[in-house]
Design a binder for these strands. Structure first.
Lengths: 332, 332
DNA sequence: ACTGCATGGGTAAACGTTTTCCCATTTCGA
DNA sequence: TCGAAATGGGAAAACGTTTACCCATGCAGT
């Protein structure tokens, strides 16, 4: 219906050139008398003018969009991080394009191309997967920051997350202490994720140091992207022998799956088996008060990510920002 | 570094004009000899050309973006719907800009304006809130579809969701049957959401019909956006009297909150109290096997929404698409 | 031989910005 | 009083597309 108001309309109404309007909108304050500024501001307010993204993007070479890639939006932690990023981006005057890669390289590559065509200002990769497209993107001009899962391709890349290895060690100490004697075990997802791999490595290493090294049959995993199923399958594998007294689950969802399997085997958590998860899903306090976990400050990820992005936009070199995590004891 | 390849580069390489390339890319097949098409296709493949969004948006007046507004991304059902929309949009060659309005009118308005400036092809409002900006948007040229929560402003607007009133009635019958005698109760969030209001209305109406009308003290609510807290507070209110035997919680998260409060009062679900939630969070089977619920086919929302959007883009008039829900008995 | 009409494809305008020049006027220092 | 510099602001190009319009050429029908 009503055509969008353009910078020309504002200029006409204020009786100045569009160049002047543009300068004032963009805060190039050097060149404009206070009266002119006032007139233009008035015209903008009256017309409700707002610069059109397409025009800006065309001229400047980049839009006000940031592409966020998530491996699996159904995963609550991914959704939480996405929400946090969204808020932080908005505070920075940017908008989020959210892409679900389903952990598939082909989809990720397609999205990388499409988002480049959209002239996004940055890529934010939530659990990236290695792919040719990613390799290409890393040499391209679009700043990229990896979140949670480190860049699966060698080279220096910006990262925001926690020290998963140290957290894994802390879990090991907590579990060993909570279960002074008896079989300990581990259930985890694919190790292609650096987050998982680091947690597992730290956990195993520390456990060995404590003299409670895990045997191969104490470690279970399963393929797939659904951590609930992974947990269920992993627990099934563990239960072929004598039930473990303590299990580290590399994510809370895995722990939920494990607990279901244990429940079906008439084992009670935490009475019969201690469980420690990871991520500390906000629902834990409500529906899983038996689950100890590691709280990752997902709410703060957005701010950290936008901070790192700011550095990249200013031309600084990529760095890793590690946030503080916290072990949450539950089910004591 | 490497400048993006533009349509001109392709044209030069294929030895044709950019108009020809554009026509071929856009499938205007009438005007191009097979050999020319072949040459251009080859040039496109070699250069990896892909039309730039900004150019298209500028020329056509709209981008390949669709704006999705969610009231609260931390809510798993919102996230699930968003994920579903994302997939459906991708299949249609579109991308999703996700905006978290935090259920605030001012943020929603700001986003409506900003997304209009981004020339989005549509608004998808997940739990919209009434506001001046929304009123203005509805008279504007951008197709709008409401999801889950109906348009809070009178007038005809496209809608995708379920028949919440009928579902509420079904819950009433199920609860009355599961708890043949004893006090029944209801905990719900703000009634400004049509989804909540309809569920509650259907539930109360049917209960009255069954001769088990709710007294005022059997209905509890609490302000705020966090359903967990609402459930907890609501349950506290209910517990001032004799504990109810069955409670309908207008969402699963509310049910989680209620259950926690009951647990703290040493009441067991479902032994002491039957609980029925709504939405059927996928986690229920894993961590809340005591919670009956109404399964809303959120996975299918995306497809339905994109279908409705297609109609709107073709100029058809807005309609409401109601999807099938299903009562899920648990904790019997 | 001329008209009429497909067929294939090129020219150029338009979309809305930003930004580089450029110009006019004023101010200031000597 | 003259030149230099500062101040305020305009003209126009460029970004990448799409599309309305135009122009050849070839061919069939008269």
């Amino acid at each position: 219906m009503t055509r969008n108001v353009s910078i020309g309309d504002v200029a006409k109404r204020a009786g100045v050139s569009i160049a002047t309007v543009s300068r004032i909108v963009n805060g190039i304050a050097k060149k404009a008398s206070p009266e002119t500024v006032e007139r233009v501001r008035k015209a903008i307010a009256e017309t409700g003018y707002r610069p059109t993204g397409a025009g800006q993007a065309l001229r400047k070479g980049h839009s006000r969009l940031v592409a966020v890639f998530a491996a699996n939006l159904a995963n609550p932690t991914m959704a939480a991080v996405a929400a946090s990023i969204e808020t932080a981006l908005r505070d920075a005057g940017l908008a989020m394009v959210l892409c679900d890669t389903h952990d598939r390289a082909d989809l990720q590559d397609e999205y990388l191309l499409e988002m480049r065509a959209q002239a996004v200002r940055a890529y934010v990769l939530l659990a990236a997967v290695a792919s040719d497209g990613l390799r290409a993107a890393l040499t391209g001009p679009i700043p990229t920051v990896f979140v949670n899962r480190r860049c699966p391709i060698p080279g220096k890349a910006a990262f925001v997350g926690i020290d998963n290895r140290a957290a894994g060690r802390e879990v090991a100490r907590a579990l060993a202490q909570a279960v002074p004697k008896g079989r300990l075990a581990l259930v985890h997802g694919p190790l292609s994720s650096s987050a998982t791999a680091d947690r597992v490595a730290g956990f195993k290493r520390e456990l060995a140091k404590l003299g409670r090294e895990l045997a191969p049959e104490d470690m279970a995993t399963a393929p797939g992207v659904d951590h609930l199923e992974i947990g269920y399958e992993g627990a099934s594998a563990l239960l072929s022998g004598r039930a473990p007294k303590g299990i580290f689950c590399a994510s809370d969802l895995i722990a939920y799956g494990v607990q279901r399997r244990l429940r079906e085997a008439d084992l009670s958590v935490p009475r019969d088996v201690r469980l420690i998860g990871f991520d500390d899903n906000p629902l834990n306090d409500w529906v899983a008060p038996w689950l100890a976990s590691v709280r990752v400050p997902y709410r703060g990820f957005g701010e950290a990510i936008v901070g790192v992005l700011g550095e990249l936009w200013r031309g600084e070199s990529p760095r890793a920002e590690l946030l503080a995590y916290e072990f949450v004891g539950r089910g004591a």
